[in-house]
Write a protein that binds this DNA or RNA. Structure first.
Lengths: 188, 188, 188, 188
DNA sequence: AATGAATGAGGATTCATTCAT
DNA sequence: CATGAATGAATCCTCATTCAT
């Protein structure tokens, strides 16, 4: 069960496609298998189950996000610039993997407790990163904590809006959100 | 099937309690019935099904929210003050019905398409209200639209955070969010 | 639980009406109660249950049929005339209580074993009567037995046909059946 | 979901066995599955539901009956002979598939509206065939129509009788019915 | 006698998961 | 590795029946 394998990647891609259309509960393992042009049983060769498959999607997205953020961190520069670049990096990843982002940010909440636990954990790790950077920019711990979560929530909602009205300019909206928070945090 | 009846209220209360713990899909009608100390069949005397019960919760919360906002609207005052009071009114309702708010804002996403359609509609109605007020405060239509949704998303996330760490001060966090957006919108 | 009572009669009438429209299984006790303008519980004051109510309908129809046949039997006359009059008497009752006849003849078969047992018993009692008369008219026991049942079956089917196409002349069809059997039995 | 498959045939056979004992409503999908030594879910791999399974039985019997009648039709011969052979063909099929015939003719009446509609349609198609042949034999349209239905009804009843008293000679009784109708129609 | 809210056993159906091929 | 037929636990909902008022 190698973490990387063409088949495994295909399955995850298929899963993103189907999950993003129907959501976690309304999607059957059969549909994912069909989308990937394999038999149902094959899914279980690469994932221990539907939940594991979903968890893998979460991990994939957050892996990419964390990677982007940490890559940015290694660069020197003042705190505000670093924060700005972190946020940009995150948004860039999310916009690049739009469907995946929508699945993870919107479609998964309220699913299985096990799933939510995992999502929460990964969520927290990521939020803490932002909290740190926000504090370095001079925000109080309380403001930083709330700010980080609020920003994530705002972005999630925007993805939900876009999911319903694909004609809207997701990129422009994400930018609008950034502007609001930047000013809101008094960093403008 | 009167819209108001002690039994019906009890069932909705029980439903909020169970849904907020397990989410829509992981909650069985049996569990709701048990929580309300009635038999399964009784649920169907007051609601046409599990979905209808959930929809009733959504409608209850949004009914209260809309009522609070519209009540505020009838008062005179300048646009900025009215907006401020609208936001306050919403938060006040959400804080008052914390569990219900958590169920509707967090636990229902990604449930049945039918549910999500209903939620979306009600969501939209409410967002439009805010968009109007934001525009009256001088924001461009684009900023207003994104701003309204972002604010709702930020609040939702805060509820999710609080759900996991009940020790946090929900009210303070909601206030923090308001401050961020207020400044973000350039209304401070 | 008097066998006769205005309420009881009303309930049976209502039952005939609803059963004849939807059949035994598709009819709920609630519907019968509503048709009779009483509460559900009231049905159980006059009948031990849905089955008992249906059995009562069977018994009512067969009671009337048997009464008509036996009344005819007491008259003198040759065997063939008596048979002719018996058949006429039966058909007259069935045509008079068309809906009831349809319920008992068509809609009940294939229902609960208990119901079918009862129906069978009453059916048998009645068939035996005809068998006797047919034998008196000179038919062999085998022909008489089969003939009696076949005649009942033919009539039942005609009622089913009429139920589907109410525009058809039930009386004329019943008469047609009589003619066929009369000749078929070699009594013409 | 191939129309023909060993499993599918086994399920239909099991269904005939159980339906013929308990009727449509009193038979649970579980019982059918058990009779076929498979799990409940397996039934749904071959049929879309209990109703579809039953409909398949109806169609199977009528398919065989129609086939037998139409095969006979293609042969030359005078109208009376053809009719005689048609009736013989029908009875032959029914006698060959006794249990199936009992299920369709007796146990299905008064089931679900949807089932009954289907049964009626198929019934009608078949009756029309007989009506045509009867008219070719010189019967008036009215007599032919009633005659066809009466004959089917008579046969059904005989099946019901035989179901209760398996010791009776079904074949002899069917023959007896044929004789009665033959004479009744004045074709003897 | 009459009511109708409440009951809860029972039934059809779904779907994640397994395993023999 | 891959398959997909088979599994059966789990779930929503119905409805005949009861009983406190």
């Amino acid at each position: 069960m190698a973490r990387t394998s063409a088949r495994r990647q295909e399955l995850m891609k298929a899963a993103v496609s189907v999950f993003s259309r129907y959501g976690y509960h309304e999607t059957g393992v059969r549909e994912i298998a069909e989308e990937a042009h394999v038999a149902v049983g094959t899914v279980y060769l690469y994932f221990s189950g539907k939940t594991d498959l979903f968890v893998s999607l979460i991990d994939m997205l957050y892996g990419r996000v964390m990677e982007a953020v940490l890559a940015n961190r290694r660069q020197s520069g003042n705190a505000v610039t670093k924060l700005e670049e972190s946020l940009e990096a995150v948004v860039k990843v999310l916009l690049h993997d739009r469907d995946l982002a929508r699945v993870v940010l919107i479609k998964s909440i309220g699913s299985e407790p096990m799933l939510e636990d995992h999502l929460w954990h990964v969520h927290q790790t990521f939020a803490n990163l932002l909290v740190e950077e926000l504090q370095e920019c001079g925000l109080t711990p309380a403001t930083a904590q709330v700010g980080a979560w609020a920003w994530v929530g705002a972005l999630s909602e925007i993805f939900g809006l876009w999911a319903r009205q694909p004609a809207l300019d997701l990129e422009a909206m994400a930018n609008e959100v950034r502007v609001i928070f930047w000013k809101g945090w008094g960093l403008g």
